[in-house]
Design a protein around this nucleic acid. Structure first.
Lengths: 230, 230
DNA sequence: TAACCTTGTCACATAGTTGTAACACTGGGG
DNA sequence: CCCCAGTGTTACAACTATGTGACAAGGTTA
């Protein structure tokens, strides 16, 4: 569900494995690296969403790597969580100074790890300042997650909401079922194309007679959201 | 001009005096306490607007007192600034974890003290925050820490109170469980997201049939506080 | 210390959502 | 006019998200 990818950097295979298992159970994708060089390559190549970085690393130390990543523009805003053994507590502060977003002291429980990782990711992704969109009296307000018409809010499911939001931000243009699946469902799901039809149907129903004309079928091509009647 | 009252808690009379003089020149009213017990009594009795709390206190330590204050609902939202000697730097983090709003390292200049105190007060006191908030006959009064409906006060726990207060000051907007944990529980606490559901449940129950409609579920998104029925 | 409250989790109950299949309808080409 | 690909519509079983009551741990009060 989260789909976030996590890079685990630690020279102990056992620890990497332990972490990977915990994270995969929480539905994260994991990559592993044993040293700074390998880590760096993976970061450039695969662009993880967050990095778990061991303080002690052979060769270039973890803190070196962190500093380097925070300097390079392309990697500067990937959050980093430092892993430190408790003997090294003093390093906490230095770690944070270098730009780490959090630190976790070994040993730690899987639950704590997941919780803090989640917290860091949350902070790193501030919610956009979405303004309401209005079309012909139909209002979609992202901040309250509400769709309103005639001063009363519509009962609309999550998928239909996303679909409508996509349409309202991409009006007057035809999208194939395939494109809609990519945009609204997310690129990596396997769903029948006909499923789109069903959700279109549900959306139209939710919009009611007054607004269902906005969702238009383009035979042989796909669907379009337009204020101009077909 | 400010009229704000400041409680200074430090076992060194000289330091208390120094601080008090500095603050009075900046037009704050000062109270002083030499230990945790005395401090606690004054806090209950005189309700200061902000507390300057020395880390090292005879008897119960400053951090103990801070933790206690943040737990009790009548004192939870009084801002606390921790005073720490620089040798104790590690404590910064622990201090903040306990819920302190800032820390200042001794020695500090009076000017710095006043500046940071002002900053904390500004953050902690959005305009008119201690005025009661009323929604559809439901009244939350921060000054008495009470929630009232139909002229009788509701039996509501500390967490539910904070949750309700957050909602009433942030109406008409969806918050994810994650965000609520950040805002209501505090950023550095690690609890299951489902715990939010349970407290939502408790809050609804406390509100009773007449008002529980205000707390709305937004499937797949989170919760929302709104006078407008879902 | 005992009675009591608060809190975070769990397990189970309930309710809302989703993707598919099956069938009905539609329009345009032959 | 018939046929058929393309689309509309409905039903439904699996799945997921949320509601709910119970409980143990920890803390507080009397």
């Amino acid at each position: 569900m989260s789909g976030k990818t996590v890079l685990i950097v630690d020279d102990e295979p056992a620890i990497r494995e332990m972490i990977a298992v915990a994270l995969e159970m929480a539905d994260y994708d994991c990559m592993e690296a044993a040293d700074a060089r390998e880590a760096h390559a993976l970061i450039i190549d695969r662009q993880p969403d967050i990095i778990l970085l061991d303080w002690m690393l052979p060769g270039s130390s973890g803190i070196e790597l962190a500093r380097r990543l925070k300097k390079e523009e392309t990697t500067a805003d990937i959050p980093i969580i430092m892993l430190t053994a408790k003997v090294e507590e003093d390093n906490k502060i230095r770690g944070l100074e270098v730009g780490a977003d959090d630190y976790i002291t070994k040993p730690f429980s899987p639950r704590e790890l997941v919780a803090r990782l989640k917290a860091v990711l949350r902070r790193a992704t501030p919610p956009g300042i979405d303004n309401p969109i209005e079309v012909d009296g139909l209002i979609l307000d992202p901040s309250s997650h509400r769709v309103t018409a005639n001063n009363s809010s519509l009962n609309i499911g999550p998928t239909e909401y996303r679909l409508l939001q996509f349409f309202m931000t991409h009006q007057e243009r035809v999208y194939t079922r395939s494109q809609l699946l990519d945009q609204v469902w997310g690129g990596n799901v396997y769903v029948e194309e006909r499923t789109v039809d069903v959700h279109i149907r549900r959306l139209r129903k939710a919009l009611g007679e007054q607004h269902d004309y906005l969702v238009q079928t383009v035979r042989g091509a796909g669907y379009r959201f337009s204020t101009q009647p077909a």
